[in-house]
């Protein structure tokens, strides 16, 4: 009996959704621009569910909002929600069968910033990191003021700074921070990695080896440059 299937179940999750940033108050302009977009890739856009985003659009009010939504609906896409509309327009949106979403949740963003600041304290090591040793700077930067050896492992949630030769493995942003970087006085590393994107020694151009460099991530591509 307890094994019987429930009629409904609520599950949390995230879905990828296209959002349509509307930047004109003129329905005809919106319609024309959308038509052009859709013609470029009809199978991709045709009937696709989208989120209408009015963020930053001036002149949006009780009167102008409906024609814009109609224009979108007539363009062979399916708006399923709206965001970026002022609170006083939310009732009007519900009448149009479009649930309003909160604009970019600023309160949450602030909370994130606060966390970033609290956890920012670095781990500093002044003695050489030897082969077989592993140093992890949790929730912060790792700063090494000495040599690191082949066969050592430097791991940080934040960035890694080595004031000496970097000879072992250096993995930064291991919890996903793709803004983390690696800095060293002499690049001789076996492996460098930022947020899971890595390069081994063989893939590092010879002219960069032994140089004072920084490593950073740009769109999943590791960049290594002398400085």
């Amino acid at each position: 009996m307890s094994l019987a299937k429930k009629a409904v179940e609520l599950k949390g999750g995230t879905v990828t959704l296209m959002s349509l940033l509307v930047q004109s108050i003129e329905p005809e302009e919106v319609k024309a621009a959308l038509k052009e977009k859709i013609e470029q890739a009809p199978t991709f856009f045709g009937g696709a569910p989208i989120l209408i985003d009015f963020s930053g659009l001036e002149g949006l009010n009780q009167k102008t909002i409906e024609p814009l939504i109609v224009a979108v609906r007539e363009s062979n896409v399916m708006p399923i929600a709206v965001r970026g509309a002022e609170d006083e327009l939310h009732d009007r949106l519900r009448e149009l069968n479009l649930p309003p979403l909160r604009a970019e949740d600023k309160s949450l963003q602030k909370e994130d910033d606060k966390i970033q600041r609290i956890v920012g304290s670095p781990r500093v090591e002044s003695r050489p990191i030897r082969s077989g040793q592993q140093v992890y700077a949790q929730e912060g930067d790792l700063i090494i003021m000495a040599n690191t050896s082949a066969g050592s492992e430097l791991i940080a949630d934040g960035s890694i700074h080595v004031y000496g030769p970097l000879r072992g493995r250096a993995l930064c942003g291991v919890t996903g921070n793709d803004k983390a970087r690696i800095f060293c006085e002499s690049l001789e590393a076996e492996l460098v990695s930022i947020a899971g994107n890595y390069k081994v020694l063989e893939e590092i151009p010879a002219e960069l080896q032994g140089r004072r460099v920084q490593v950073w991530l740009d769109e999943h591509k590791l960049n290594i440059e002398p400085f």
């Binding site: 003695r127 990191i129 030897r130 082969s131 077989g132 040793q133 066969g151």
Partner: peptide
């Protein structure tokens, strides 16, 4: 040299 480096790490820890 690599093995000596390893033993130095053990001495330190």
């Amino acid at each position: 040299v690599r093995d000596s480096d390893r033993i130095l790490g053990i001495l330190q820890s």
